[in-house]
Amino acid sequence: MLKSLDEEISIVDLTKITDPRGSLTFIEGEVHIPFPVRRVYYLYDVTSGSARAGHAHFALEQLVIAVSGSFDLVLDNGYDRRTITCNRPWIGVHMKSLIWRDLNNFSSGAVCLVLASERYAEPDYIRNYDSFLEVIKQRDAR
C-alpha cells in the first residue's frame, strides 16, 4: 500500500514555557507523542561533514529533536524523500516505522535527542538501502 510521506512523519510542536529565567520544554510519552518512550539516546560531537543514521526500522517509531544547534534530517519512504532542518529545541520530528533516515549537516555543538518506542534490537534495523526498498516493495505488493 503506497503511503504518502506526510502520513508517516509529522512535526510535533512541543510545549515551550518561557520566563525571565529561561525556557523549559517537556515531553510525555503517549501524551505529546503517540508511543511510550522505551529508549532515549543523543548524538553529539559529530564531526563536520559526518553523517549519522543511514537505516530504517521494521517496527520502531522515533521522535528526533535538535536540543542544541542544528542538523538536517533526510527522510525517505521508498517513494518520496524530504529534508527537514532541525534547529529548534521545542520542535520534534515524529517518524513511524519503515522510514529511511539520514542525519547530516551538523552545526558545531549540535545535540540530537532521540526518543524511541522500543529498546535497542538489532533485528529491527534495515541497514542497506536496497534491502529497505525491497521491504517496501514486498509490503506494497500485499
Rank of each mutant, 00 (worst) to 15 (best):
Q62V: 03
S70Q: 06
P89T: 01
L75K: 06
G78A: 07
I126W: 09
F71P: 04
T83S: 11
D72Q: 04
R127T: 11
D102M: 06
I9A: 05
T18P: 04
S107F: 01
N104D: 14
S68V: 00
Q62Y: 04
F71Y: 15
C112P: 09
T18G: 06
V93F: 08
T25D: 04
K137M: 02
L75W: 01
N77C: 06
V93K: 03
E30A: 10
G29D: 07
S23V: 02
S10H: 03
K3T: 05
T15E: 09
V111S: 09
Y120R: 04
F71E: 06
T47M: 12
E61R: 13
R139T: 01
Y79H: 15
K96R: 14
P36E: 10
A141Q: 14
A51V: 12
C86E: 07
E118Y: 05
G49V: 06
H55Q: 14
E30G: 02
I9F: 05
G78M: 04
P123M: 01
Y79L: 11
V40Q: 12
P20W: 03
S107N: 06
H55N: 11
I9K: 05
N128S: 08
V31R: 15
L75F: 02
S50H: 12
R119V: 08
E118Q: 13
F58N: 06
S97N: 14
A66D: 01
F58G: 03
I9T: 13
Y41V: 09
V74Q: 08
G78F: 05
V135E: 13
D19Q: 05
E134T: 09
D140I: 03
G78N: 09
I136W: 01
L73T: 01
S50Y: 02
I65W: 00
K137Q: 12
V67I: 15
V12H: 04
L60T: 12
S50Q: 15
S97R: 13
T25R: 10
V111N: 11
R101P: 00
Y120L: 05
D80N: 09
L60R: 13
D72N: 14
A110M: 10
R139W: 01
F106G: 12
I126F: 08
N77W: 07
S97W: 00
R52P: 12
S10N: 08
I17F: 07
V111W: 06
S131I: 05
H32R: 03
T85N: 13
S107W: 00
Y129H: 15
I33D: 07
L24M: 15
S107V: 02
W90T: 02
L73F: 07
C112A: 15
Y42V: 04
N128L: 07
F71D: 08
L115H: 04
D140K: 04
H32S: 12
T25A: 12
G92V: 06
L5M: 05
R101A: 10
E8L: 15
A121G: 02
A51G: 08
R142P: 00
T15D: 07
S117M: 08
L113E: 10
I27N: 03
E8T: 11
L2V: 10
V114L: 06
I126K: 05
T25P: 08
S68I: 00
V111E: 14
T25S: 15
V93R: 04
D19G: 11
N87H: 13
W100A: 04
G69Y: 02
D102C: 00
R82T: 07
V64P: 00
C112E: 13
